[in-house]
Design a protein around this nucleic acid. Structure first.
Length: 604
RNA sequence: GGAGGCGUGGUGUAGUCCGGCCUAACAUACCUGACUGUCGAUCAGGAGAUCGCGGGUUCAAAUCCCGUCGCCUCCGCCA
């Protein structure tokens, strides 16, 4: 990396980055630009740490070697922007700073120019000092001066570069698709943009370029990719921002296996090139049903076991009412083993209830295995034989804890999925270690998702993935008769319990697409109005095609070992979708509203 | 839409449960002075907060109550 300036600034030409100076530069004259990290004023001698993107170097101001520079150095304060010209000298052995990449040298400036003074920063521009995130977001430019965020942005750049190089080499073409497009039913809420030219009409920002990339397949591009911003007006999470970036891919004459292979190859190359980490292929593939049954989630963290086991048959025959009723009502009874957690107090056991309650489970039944028996609030309701069978199924031995949840299958799975993560956290199995070789990277594919699920809220079947996803050939016949049974040619890529992305084989025949629309309750006229252009396109020679979209932000987050998307996005939004730096969203002038023929319902 | 956590000089925290000892403490940053080998410099001195905001209870509120705003996490929602 170099920061040499191509042109001089005020007669000065930058020769090196601060962090680049090494003993071999000793004796040379250098010109450096940067920010004052810190000034240590010893009266007759002043040390200044100068920082730029490349790192830090120590400047030494001595009246003997530069009277004017020494005087100027006394005026320097934190974050002043300066240019210095001086001589690089090696440090005496006992003055070397081993904590600094440039610690074997220092610069003796004979000229200092203050290019710009700075107010005292509202947050320390220094790594490792925790600052309230609201302050960091309000002064994002100062937060971004700190090394962790800078290195995350650099990492992100390298990932994007590696992705582009990979797809370019594979014959893919990056095509830009519109941001101002039309709202389509299904999926997330749209961000709307009013049209001035057409009052009363709105563009929508794309939730993804889904339709366009399929049309590019009809258009004969054959291999498309795009690193593209997507917009979804839904509530945020640590791993969800209203605008996020996808690595969007679509290819013709390809089936699911081709997409999986291609994606794996891309991931392997990105990790190798950017982090120097080798990722093993192929990634294991799990059917959705299996993932739910074994891990209670469709995005399993495979870094640890702690798999669910089924007690439903035992429960059906049990004298314990809670068990029997769950089984009789069509629910399930399942549990997990928490190795070594049998010693928790009753109060700590009850804290597990709080983990499952958000998912609709009333609580967790626990059995603590001791050397002299089993402790459990349900001990008296269970026969010795039942307790023994539970322990056998759990594989539990003395010192272990068994956690059991009974109820509807989806509630039980969600609850145990969350409990499994909670147990893993307690056992220290989920450290989000970065990927510098030490962290486990357990990629997997989850495949055979259901094509449809019934939405009680909307009173109809809705697409699990999106309405253009093809059903498995062997399930297509049940589309109308038993929609729940139909599995999709869809796949999700999961890394350590985080969903990195997903895709599917698309429907490329108009007749099948119309059948799916019909099951979704999209009447022909409505389908024609909203997706007509796609259906029409399908009539002009559409190749079979499939694709995938990966969350670039999430991928970078995982690679950086970051806990939040905000740490890998230069200008992120808060949990309430505001931008504390710019103040967006903001009110607009009445004139702007008038021009758009918009009237706010509160009368303005 | 719901649940929980947090909000005290610029920054990070203590104090809040159990009101009075708070005329709000500590660290750091900041300002001034001293100091020629520091690199988390050191030493001496100084300035800086009506405790997110509004209302209430009380002789008395950072502390209790009600409301409200902001940030974070999770559920719903979202692929």
């Amino acid at each position: 990396m170099t920061l040499r300036a191509p042109l001089g600034l005020a007669g000065l030409r930058r020769t090196h980055g601060c962090g680049e100076l090494r003993p071999e530069h000793a004796g040379g004259r250098v010109t450096l630009f940067g920010w004052v990290q810190r000034r240590r004023d010893h009266g007759g001698l002043i040390f200044v740490d100068l920082r730029d993107r490349t790192g830090l170097v120590q400047l030494v101001f001595n009246p003997a070697t530069g009277e004017a520079a020494f005087a100027e150095a006394g005026k320097l304060r934190s974050e002043y922007v300066v240019a210095v010209v001086g001589q690089v000298r090696p440090r005496a052995r006992d003055r070397v700073n081993p904590n600094l990449a440039t610690g074997e040298v220092e610069v003796f400036p004979d000229e200092v120019r203050i290019l710009n003074p700075a107010r005292t920063p509202p947050l320390p521009v220094e790594d490792r000092i925790d600052v309230d995130e609201a302050v960091r977001l309000r002064y994002r430019y100062l937060d971004l001066r700190r090394a962790p965020l800078q290195s995350n942005l650099l990492l992100r750049h390298r990932v994007a570069k590696a992705v582009r190089d990979f797809f370019d080499r594979q014959g893919f073409v990056e095509v830009e698709t519109p941001f101002l497009t039309r709202s389509t039913p299904e999926g997330a809420r749209d961000y709307l943009v009013p049209s001035r030219v057409h009052p009363g009409r709105f563009y929508a920002l794309p939730q993804s370029p889904q339709l366009f990339k399929q049309i590019l397949m009809v258009a004969g591009l054959e291999r498309y990719f795009q690193i593209v911003r997507c917009f979804r007006d839904e509530d945020l999470r640590a791993d969800r921002q209203p605008e996020f970036t996808q690595i969007d891919v679509e290819l013709s004459f390809a089936d699911a296996g081709d997409v999986l292979d291609l994606t794996e190859a891309m991931i392997v190359e990105v990790y190798r090139r950017v982090l120097g980490v080798s990722v093993e292929r192929p990634f294991p593939r799990l059917a959705y049903r299996e993932a739910m049954a074994r891990f209670g989630t469709d995005k399993p963290d495979l870094r640890f076991g702690l798999e669910l086991f089924d007690l439903t048959p035992l429960a059906a025959a049990s004298g314990f009412r809670v068990f029997r009723r769950s089984a009789e009502e069509g629910g399930v009874v399942k549990g997990i083993r928490a190795p070594g957690l049998g010693g928790l107090s009753r109060k700590e056991m009850e804290a597990f209830d709080g983990v499952v309650r958000p998912f609709g489970a009333p609580g967790v039944l626990w059995l603590a295995v001791g050397t002299d028996g089993v402790r459990s609030p349900a001990r008296q309701h269970l026969s010795d034989g039942e307790v023994q069978e539970i322990l056998t199924r759990a594989g539990a031995t003395a010192g272990d804890l068994v956690l059991i949840v009974a109820g509807a299958a989806d509630v039980v799975h969600a609850s145990l999925g969350a409990l499994r993560l909670e147990v893993a956290r307690r056992l220290g199995l989920t450290e989000r270690t970065a990927t510098n070789g030490s962290g486990a990277l357990r990629f997997c594919w989850v495949v055979e998702f259901p094509l449809l699920e019934y939405s009680a809220e909307e009173g109809r079947w809705v697409a699990v993935h999106h309405p253009f996803t093809a059903p498995l050939d062997e399930d297509e016949a049940f589309l109308e008769s038993d929609p729940a049974r139909v599995r999709a040619k869809a796949y999700d890529l999961v890394l350590n319990g985080v969903e990195l992305g997903g895709g599917s084989v698309r429907i490329h025949r108009r007749d099948l697409q119309e059948r799916v629309f019909k099951v979704l309750g999209l009447e022909e006229t409505e389908a024609a109005a909203k997706f007509g252009f796609l259906l029409e396109a399908f009539e002009y020679g559409t190749p079979p095609h499939a694709g995938i979209a990966l969350g670039l932000d999430r991928l970078v987050m995982m690679m950086a070992g970051a806990a939040s998307l905000r740490d890998v996005i230069a200008f992120p939004k808060t949990a309430s979708a505001t931008d504390l730096l710019t103040g967006a969203p903001a009110e607009v002038s009445p004139a702007q509203l008038r021009e758009l023929r918009l009237k706010l319902s509160d009368g303005r």
